[in-house]
Simulated scan of single mutants.
Amino acid sequence: MRPDILVVEDDSSIAQFVAASLSAEGMSPRVAATAAEARGELRASMPRLLIVDLGLPDADGVDLIAQWRSECGVPILVLSARMQEAQKIAALDAGADDYLTKPFGVGELLARVRAMLRRAAAAPAPAAQLRIGALAFDREARSLAVDGREVHLTPLEYRLFERLARTPGKVVTHRQLLADVWGGDQVDQLHYLRIYMGHLRAKIEADPAEPRWLLTELGVGYRLADE
């Protein structure tokens, strides 16, 4: 079956270029020029992947990504002319899986799309609920509680915790976490991971300096304790 991909782009020339490239690769693209059109397309049928421009005429792309990420787990690839690091981080924080800056080559676009589809297809379906001691995680409700106290997580913090919670007790390498949470072009940005792991520990651990659940494997990665 041809993967269904929704391209949300108000520049018709770029939208047509992306759609034609995806179609030639054996995919089935749909195009929406506005946030309103995209919402209609999503209501009609959920795609396998979203490709989203940040500069839409009727909504800010970052806000839109945050809204969609709270409603579904579809991978999101950002296409944008915004090149500043803070703008990229804002989109990734909101819930985007990867970021491609305009102008871009068709080869890189297709490689990233293929990689995101592979990761989504290969990911095993994790249990809806996970309980480890006083820690309770519910994927369907997108909620996390410690000792009965609900912990508010930002979209990116949630994605980082959820990635570790897929394989409790097993180490997830720095590069795996960076690729799965921030995107394939961020695998060398270890400071992102350290900063957000610090945020998570501050919210979850009784003593962030002596973590009970979010454990460090020196030089390798992190794991979520399973007992």
Rank of each mutant, 00 (worst) to 15 (best):
M46H: 10
T167R: 13
L92T: 08
E217I: 10
L160K: 04
R166S: 00
P29W: 09
R112K: 08
L178Q: 02
E9N: 06
P47R: 09
A90D: 14
S70N: 13
A15G: 10
G169S: 09
A123S: 10
D207Y: 11
A123L: 06
L135S: 07
A96R: 07
P211E: 04
D138I: 00
A202N: 15
R48S: 13
G198E: 11
L178D: 03
L77I: 05
D97V: 07
R149W: 03
G148A: 00
A96Y: 09
A165Y: 00
D11R: 14
W213N: 02
A38Y: 06
T101D: 10
G55W: 06
S143Y: 02
D58Y: 11
L135T: 04
S80P: 10
D226M: 11
K170S: 14
R112N: 05
L42F: 04
A120P: 01
P211D: 04
L224D: 03
L6V: 00
R2I: 01
H199G: 12
E210I: 13
I132V: 14
P3V: 01
A225S: 14
V171Q: 09
S13G: 08
A209H: 12
Q186T: 08
L200D: 05
L153D: 08
R142N: 06
S23W: 11
A206N: 11
V7S: 05
L110C: 05
A33G: 11
P57R: 02
L77A: 04
G107L: 14
D53G: 06
A90S: 13
R48N: 13
R2M: 11
Q84L: 13
S23G: 13
S23P: 02
V78E: 07
T173S: 15
L109N: 02
L117G: 03
Q186H: 12
R142E: 04
V7K: 07
P124Y: 00
A111K: 13
K203G: 08
T101G: 14
M197H: 07
T101L: 15
L156N: 12
G184N: 04
L110D: 03
A38P: 06
Y158D: 13
E162H: 02
D4T: 11
H199P: 11
D226A: 15
A122R: 08
P103Y: 05
L144C: 09
L160Q: 06
A35R: 14
G55D: 12
S28D: 15
L130Q: 06
L56G: 08
R131S: 12
A209Q: 15
G219C: 06
L49D: 03
E108R: 14
E71L: 12
S80F: 10
S23I: 02
V106L: 10
A81G: 15
R131V: 10
I76F: 01
V7C: 10
L214H: 09
G55M: 12
S143D: 02
P155D: 01
L193D: 03
D180R: 04
L54V: 02
P208Q: 07
A115P: 05
H174E: 13
E227W: 12
D11P: 03
D185S: 15
G148E: 01
A90H: 10
A202M: 12
P126Y: 01
Q16H: 14
